[in-house]
Design a protein around this nucleic acid. Structure first.
Lengths: 137, 137
DNA sequence: TCTTGACCTAAAGTCGACTTGAAGTTGCAG
DNA sequence: CTGCAACTTCAAGTCGACTTTAGGTCAAGA
């Protein structure tokens, strides 16, 4: 498969695929002339990368988790990352419940509703957490 | 309270507080000479902003949700955002379960474990989702 | 053979969310 | 009254994750 085909099937632009290859997240199986050739397995890898990015992992995280140089699996790292996700799931749930409450609540401002404030349990205590993301659907 | 106090109490650098004020996410209650003065309510607002950022909302999202110019609450927007979070919670849960499975699984590579692949239900179907984030604990 | 569209590389640009730097001002402890 | 730490502004820089641009290369169909 050449890059255009992978782009079509994965929904990612070719530029992104080249960028990922450069970062070592995917590998082409060789070249046909100048052109990279990929085999089908790359589609699974790309789907995994996309999911990982969507849940907030950086591309470097993805590399560490799924393509260690020595081919070994760092099981402890995976457990740690799973634990991070648990924390994140808790935050998301809190936020969701807060939003749903605020949508129903009659208080004139979110900050005047003690319920809202309690649900969000304001006070993050997490300096230097990380960057951002877009939840989407 | 001047900005240093808010910085200390919120854990955010003063530069960030100025930046947020400039973006309209928080407001100072006035000035003492040149110096911004804040009242305590700002701490709640900052905690809310931090949580929102941590769950993946952009600063613009936060503005839309919590400080609409007209003082009105867009309840439908809040419900929509809550629904986004539900989608995201599902993805996080999927990813977490995949990671936990991979941490136990004996397959030599994640991609050779049909269980792992099934758990992640590879195939994202979400082009142009968003950027990134760091879940952290 | 010629054309053309899909591919190639390297470098620069973009975007959000801040951070850093330079240069200036000022409240207040001593 | 002085000194200076803590503030001020405005502009430019950084970082991750890409995207865009500029200038080629080349396989294959007409």
């Amino acid at each position: 498969m050449d890059i255009g085909e992978v782009a079509k099937l994965s929904g990612l632009p070719a530029s992104t695929l080249r960028f990922y290859e450069q970062k070592g997240l995917i590998r082409s199986s060789g070249r046909h002339g100048l052109r990279r050739q990929f085999n089908e397995q790359v589609l699974q890898q790309l789907a995994l990368i996309s999911l990982a990015c969507q849940v907030g992992f950086s591309l470097d995280d993805v590399g560490q988790m799924f393509q260690r140089a020595d081919g070994e699996i760092d099981r402890q790292l995976l457990r740690d990352k799973a634990a991070e996700l648990n924390g994140q799931i808790r935050r998301l749930t809190r936020m969701r419940d807060g939003l749903l409450h605020a949508a129903e609540c009659q208080a004139p401002s979110h900050f005047e509703c003690p319920n809202f404030l309690r649900i969000l349990k304001l006070a993050g205590r997490r300096p230097r957490a990380g960057k951002n993301s877009a939840p989407s659907t």
